[in-house]
């Protein structure tokens, strides 16, 4: 089974000072899989996804991405990062650069593509995201949903093998969540390997291959969306799902 595994985590531990954020996470992601991680705030899910491209360094255990182990070796880390795209909750676009410059920055400086090639590729991605006409605006002139789609395009411009999404829709107004989720759905159906931290259960139900419920720095439960939604084994999972899925905060996905 480990032959087509692209992310392998074995017993990953992480401390912030005395606080232990991750207490032995082990999981394996295969090529083309879509993983959704959910759980209450402070459960370590964001910390975990950030250890995958070493924005946070783990202190014990092993993380192997596409055959390269993440260690203190800076060259390994940079090599791994250029193969992993990441989308943040707060977009983190570069405000001093235009949308086009945001998307072409890494291909030009890391991949050493000529500018014309990078811009042609960027324009294609922006078209795919439905915002080619915004290419020469600055991030500050776009709506939240548009900014997040630029962020997705920026990550995809490096032609990554894996995409990480850290609560990509949590900072968005409800009417803009849809446009970002559509972009992610398209990406999932294209066969991208995705690790998504999100509470968008509609998205999870539709495209997730497996779901992981994090709480207190450990994986409490894992399973297919079917198992998680219909036969959760743990009380904590049941309780959390009932809160997340309660009709009060319903922004359900229309089934496609």
């Amino acid at each position: 089974m480990e032959n087509d595994a692209i992310i392998i985590c074995r017993d990953v531990h992480k401390w912030f000072g005395n606080f232990q954020a991750l207490k032995g996470i082990s999981l394996t992601v295969k090529k083309g899989e879509v993983i959704v991680i959910f759980g209450p705030s402070g459960s370590g899910k964001s910390t975990f996804i950030r250890t995958l491209n070493r924005l946070e360094a783990h202190q014990r255990g092993q993380i192997i991405i596409d055959g390269i182990e993440l260690t203190h070796d800076v060259r390994n880390v940079e090599a791994v990062r250029s193969e992993i795209g990441m989308v943040f909750q707060s977009f983190n676009l570069f405000p001093h650069l235009t949308v086009m410059q945001n998307v072409t920055l890494a291909p030009i400086w890391v991949r050493r593509w000529p500018k014309s090639r990078a811009e042609a590729a960027a324009l294609k991605l922006l078209e795919r995201m439905g915002i080619p006409e915004q290419a020469h605006k600055y991030p500050g002139q776009l709506s939240g949903g548009q900014q997040q789609r630029v962020a997705i395009a920026r990550a995809l411009a490096m032609q990554p093998k894996i995409m990480l999404f850290d609560e990509p829709t949590s900072a968005l107004d409800p009417e803009m969540i849809r446009e970002v989720l559509d972009a992610m759905l398209w990406l999932a159906r294209e066969g991208m390997t995705m690790v998504v931290v999100s509470h968008e259960m509609g998205f999870a139900r539709e495209v997730a291959d497996r779901m992981f419920f994090f709480d207190g720095g450990v994986i409490v439960e894992e399973g297919t969306p079917d198992q998680i939604f219909h036969q959760p084994q743990q009380e904590r999972t049941k309780l959390f799902l009932s809160q997340v899925l309660s009709p009060r905060r319903s922004a359900p996905m229309a089934s496609a």
Binding site: E78, N92, L105
Partner: peptide, 18 residues
């Protein structure tokens, strides 16, 4: 400059000086 700017740039694989 917010922390997120460093993170976004690092996540793209840019080296420290870049």
């Amino acid at each position: 400059v917010p922390r997120g700017q460093y993170e976004a740039a690092e996540a793209l694989g840019l080296s420290g000086p870049l």
